[in-house]
């Protein structure tokens, strides 16, 4: 994927480089065989797919698209999308080395979706939920007006029907090409969650690799329960920016899901295969 679609200075991190290199491209690898980007094992593609896109050798969790995420989490055939027609505009007429509308068009063609967020209603192990999933392959999963508005609407939908809300994050942060408008989505989504909280709603935030910048610093960190996938990069600033600031190498595992759990900011690191049962159990405990 294009390195330019990574969206903040703080996100020019190692994962951005990995993502930008075709040889190490994550997401859905083509062909019958594939190499694990973590342990380098040669894997039969179908066996990885059947293992929820987790390496059977080293348990590396490959990144998922929004569609793959929803398909894995919800009961088959139960997802009913919301706000599919909500599409990005170019309010600032942003032009860097490319035009923002051209970047959008390329991302839309690549993913088949209008923007980096899918939301809708579904069932998880028979429990009715409102769900959202971000797509890192769409401009680095960055949050602009569409992502923020879809999140606000799915929160309000969950509030209206008193349903549990699950949002799976995968994002480099706020989208630069909508500048201040993107920034305000942080306030918008957090404010919507405050209202949802006031009415006793249950929000389960699931953090996947990577979740950084303005997404972490808003709705993603506001779950009643916060789950994270193993080894997911989670942080505010990106590792490279931090290294430049403190001028020393960062410790192993810094900003990984397990580190966040040990620092007290993630309730539980949960393997992908266990997410459905973890989420449905929490829903039951909350009585939703």
């Amino acid at each position: 994927m294009d390195k330019n679609s990574v969206t903040k200075q703080q996100q020019t991190t190692q994962w951005a480089d990995e993502a930008s290199s075709p040889a190490k491209k994550r997401g859905i690898p083509e062909g019958l065989w594939m190499r694990c980007t973590s342990c380098a094992a040669i894997l039969f593609r179908r066996s990885v797919e059947n293992n929820l896109w987790v390496c059977p050798e080293c348990q590396h969790h490959f990144r998922l698209s929004g569609s793959q995420r929803i398909e894995q989490l919800v009961d088959a055939g139960t997802f009913e999308p919301h706000d599919e027609n909500l599409a990005p505009a170019d309010p600032l007429q942003f032009v860097d080395l490319k035009k923002y509308p051209d970047r959008l068009e390329a991302a839309q063609k690549k993913t088949g979706f209008n923007d980096a967020m899918q939301t809708g209603q579904a069932f998880i192990k028979g429990r009715k939920v409102m769900i959202g999933a971000m797509d890192f392959t769409f401009l680095g999963g960055s949050m602009g007006s569409v992502v923020g508005e879809k999140i606000r609407r799915i929160i309000e939908a969950a509030a209206d029907q008193d349903l549990p809300l699950i949002i799976v994050s995968a994002s480099g942060g706020a989208r630069m090409m909508e500048s201040g408008l993107s920034l305000m989505q942080m306030a918008k989504t957090s404010a919507a969650l405050a209202r949802f909280d006031d009415m006793g709603g249950l929000f389960i935030s699931v953090l996947s690799d990577p979740t950084t910048g303005g997404v972490t610093a808003s709705f993603a960190m506001l779950g009643d329960v916060i789950l994270a996938e193993p080894n997911a990069l989670i942080g505010f600033a990106g590792p490279r920016v931090i290294e430049q600031t403190i001028k020393q190498a960062l410790p192993d595992g810094f900003q990984r899901a397990e580190f966040l759990q040990s620092c007290g900011f993630v309730d539980c690191v949960v393997a992908r295969k266990d997410l459905r049962s973890e989420i449905s159990s929490i829903i039951d405990y909350a009585g939703k």
Binding site: M186, T216, A217, F236, I242, T245, L250, F254
Partner: peptide, 16 residues
Amino acid sequence: PGLKAEERGQAQAIAE
């Protein structure tokens, strides 16, 4: 953007 700030939950503090 620093190590200690991340350890102490910079993102969580702002989100809150």
